[in-house]
Design a protein around this nucleic acid. Structure first.
Length: 430
RNA sequence: GGGCAGUUACCAGAGUGGCCAAAUGGGGCAGACUGUAAAUCUGCUGGCGACGCCUACGGUGGUUCGAAUCCAUCACUGCCCA
């Protein structure tokens, strides 16, 4: 199965320029995806682009990951109704380094194969260019009329936008277009991929290549990942879902995928895993027969957690989930030995508190708001207690004034706080 | 430089002298039902020692018994003209 066929059945093609398939049939293609280094870790929103590159490489083509050190300094106006904050060069440098390391987990950069992946940073070639040279050699080839016709620009220019658009952001598409031109000339790269919001920026690149070198280059975009209920993909109550375990623990990561709704599960399995068409068809069928077992979500969570983290992380995430979401009771919880307990709660937010406060007893509300900031305010906690939303050691807390003493601790040193069904906090008593 | 419009809670957005911790919608959190899903229904959504107090409607100063609301001034944003 070739690259285009593969992406097509996975539902990963939103739009592409005619001729991409033919071009890739003839020879080994070189294609790239750009990544903005806005943080020092990728999040799952970036994963789609990474998956495209992986498929690209698997099909024998050469993927290039472009870290946007230069473009990151400008900020892409696509999909943004507001002007971006600029990042400092220092921050960007740091972010680029971290991102490089993450990417090397997914793509093969080191082999001697002709299609080994490559990592480039557009800052490396942009930094040398003078403004004058840029507007003379590049700007001359693209008209403002052309640039204004782009959706991303039009949206910001109509008077309903709450903010204007700076020249800096307006220039963005040209800078990105130049990246493509540069890669076309220096790396023989003839394909740029990205999310569907990138279509405008990418075609500015192909246009530039055509006008300046009379060459041919292509654009291919994948659909923006959405959720069936219209919410933003990749966000949880605590923000982005990151690939870096320092920001999103493997447990949380696993839980994110497990919690995907039925309506989205099949779509995500196709995009974020390498499971075959047959395997997915089977899972989908099982899902229909026994939806409560959630075979699709489980497979999705397994594959992605293993890919991003590791087999061991996956196993412990499952174990933790079974204990937290199984029907375990307070008694069962007390029987757990310390090692298991800690393993289970690895990745759950933890708080430390001194042992002495329990010797005389402490009110739940003082403990969880003042001694350790599990809840942001007392009012908040009272409301949750009144609504039956808090459990301690798997027992519902009925009264926020209830006293807690040494006897309530698990293994004499832990206290498990639960907010709602899915949020756990562990108090370490020292 | 000139003219106009604007700045209210997480977001959008009403309120134009006391009835305002501020309508409504969205989002978020929690509860019920479930399958850790969706849909639906309910409650909450500034803080606290809580029938009260404190802090808050861009900043500052003023008018007034009383200001998100009126005046002055500054800052910021958008649109138009030069």
């Amino acid at each position: 199965m070739n690259f285009i066929e593969e992406l097509t059945w996975r539902g990963m093609i939103h739009d592409m320029m005619p001729g991409v398939g033919e071009m890739l049939e003839k020879k080994m293609g070189v294609g790239y995806v750009g990544i903005d280094p806005t943080a020092d870790s990728l999040h799952i929103g970036h994963l789609v682009g990474v998956m495209m590159l992986k498929h690209f490489q698997r099909c024998g083509h050469k993927p290039i990951a472009l870290v946007g050190g230069a473009t990151g300094m400008i900020g892409d106006p696509s999909g943004k109704s507001q002007e971006r904050n600029l990042l400092s060069e220092e921050t960007l440098r740091h972010n680029q380094e971290s991102i490089k390391q993450q990417l090397s987990r997914f793509l093969d950069f080191d082999s001697d194969a002709p299609n080994a992946a490559e990592l480039v940073n557009n800052y490396d070639w942009m930094k040398e260019i003078s403004f004058l040279a840029f507007i003379r050699d590049i700007g001359k080839h693209i008209t403002v009329n052309y640039m204004m016709a782009k959706d991303s620009v039009k949206k910001r220019l109509n008077s309903e936008a709450s903010e204007g658009m700076s020249f800096t952001e307006f220039t963005y598409q040209l800078v990105q277009g130049y990246d493509f031109l540069y890669l076309y000339q220096h790396k023989n790269c003839t394909l740029q991929m990205g999310g569907s919001d990138q279509w405008g920026n990418i075609t500015t690149g192909t246009e530039l290549i055509r006008r300046k070198t009379d060459g041919e280059a292509f654009a291919l975009t994948c659909p923006l990942i959405t959720k069936a209920d219209g919410g933003k993909f990749g966000k949880t109550e605590s923000g982005n879902v990151w690939l870096d375990r320092r920001y999103t623990s493997p447990y949380k990561f696993y839980q994110f995928w497990l919690n995907v709704s039925d309506a989205d599960a099949e779509k995500y399995v196709k995009i974020f895993t390498f499971l075959s068409q047959e395997e997915i068809a089977l899972l989908t069928q099982q899902q229909q027969e026994a939806p409560h077992l959630r075979p699709l979500q489980k497979a999705l969570a397994r594959e992605v957690t293993i890919m991003v983290h590791s087999e061991e992380d996956y196993v412990s995430a499952v174990e933790a989930s079974n204990i937290l979401f199984g029907n375990s009771t307070s008694d069962q919880l007390k029987k757990l030995d310390e090692e298991t307990l800690l393993a289970v709660f690895d990745g759950v937010p933890q708080f430390e508190v001194s042992h002495s406060v329990f010797t005389e007893g402490i009110k739940a509300i003082d403990l969880l708001v003042e001694k350790c900031p599990v809840f942001p305010s007392k009012g908040e906690m009272r409301k949750l207690v009144a609504g039956g939303g808090i459990a301690i050691n798997k027992e519902k807390l009925m009264d926020s004034e209830r006293l807690f003493v040494t006897n309530d601790l698990l293994n004499n040193q832990y206290l498990l706080v639960q907010k709602g069904k899915k949020n756990y906090y562990l108090l370490l008593v020292k």
